[in-house]
Design a protein around this nucleic acid. Structure first.
Lengths: 195, 195
DNA sequence: GTCTATAGTAAGATAGAC
DNA sequence: GTCTATCTTACTATAGAC
């Protein structure tokens, strides 16, 4: 990847973020050096600082962008949707969205303790907002008499943990297709909150 | 913690492991220095090398000991136990054992990528053995007609992910007692594999 | 068994040339 | 916008005195 001098601001920025994403996911934030990231991109370490004030900002922006994408893409309830239909949509969405972005998801779960305090608060707020979507579905389902859930907050934690766990074993082209995985998990989620 | 010279081999070893456990769990393996560990114990960095050949071994032994304890403590099936009773015992055991050791559990999940390859294989074998215990219960329950689970391997992953997730939010002295948490999760697990 | 001291390396970030 | 060079700091691990 040796390069001579030149100006490539329009492509270097995204390439830096992509390299940081891959390296942070594989080796962990603390174990990756700015020199490694620069090496992947094909520039010298000093050049990174034209694009990020420091290593911490690189991590924070990867996590923030991922969670903002997650919230923007999460299914919205249409009038007339039953809680059961909304729960199925949430379940399938969560599995599909997360398995499409294993590196972003891994970082968002593993690197929370490497965030500066103010950055941590912002990321936590985004995560809490997402969990709130599922809690809302469960509470509505309980009110409607469709679900039996003693504690909707805990049930939301339990369902999200179960679904996010797919990323620890699922591989494209493996024994099960994504559709089959969605259906297996939806079967368990549906029963776990059933009356 | 300033200390003068002296011999304390019988207590220094455990104190080093305890300090490494706490620091690795809080800041991550790669972000913790041998000097930090030594500082917590009250010795100089060089003294650590009387107890461990290197930093990697410190991590590996913490993870190995934790998983060996887990396997040794996991409930064994007695003749005549129904699959349902065995699944309840497993569920309650997993929650109780893990919430009693949040730092060990955290490290065992978060620091896998910092293990040397041969150490990784040994840790993975222990984890697989534990997952196999739950798979056995589920398969027996399906054969007996007590459970309806399309894919026992995936169902085992799903249940373990759900249960391990308790550690991300549970705190001693919080809104719910451990008994209440066990019962809430057992209710969901039981239903999720029900016929 | 612990200390002090240090070898040897690598980190994050910056300065100034081009 | 990128390079080379460097500042400053910190790291793992070891050597030898006590």
């Amino acid at each position: 990847m040796a390069r001579t001098q030149g100006s490539h601001s329009d492509i270097t920025g995204p390439r830096i973020r992509a390299a940081a994403l891959r390296l942070f996911a594989r080796h962990g934030f603390a174990a990756v050096s700015m020199r490694q990231i620069a090496g992947e991109v094909g520039v010298q370490a000093g050049a990174l600082y034209n694009y990020t004030p420091d290593k911490q900002s690189l991590l924070f922006e990867l996590m923030r962008d991922h969670l903002q994408d997650l919230l923007a893409a999460a299914p919205k309830a249409a009038p007339g949707d039953t809680p059961l239909a909304r729960l199925e949509a949430f379940t399938r969405f969560h599995i599909r969205f997360n398995t499409e972005r294993p590196e972003e998801v891994f970082i968002a779960y593993m690197e929370l303790r490497n965030l500066a305090p103010e950055n941590f608060r912002e990321i936590e707020a985004l995560r809490t907002a997402y969990e709130g979507r599922l809690q809302r579905i469960l509470r509505d389902g309980v009110e409607a008499g469709d679900f039996r859930v003693c504690d909707p907050q805990i049930a939301a934690y339990a369902v999200i943990a179960m679904l996010t766990g797919v990323n620890t074993w699922f591989r494209q082209g493996g024994r099960l297709s994504l559709d089959e995985v969605e259906t297996l998990y939806w079967d368990m989620v549906r029963k776990s909150v059933a009356s």
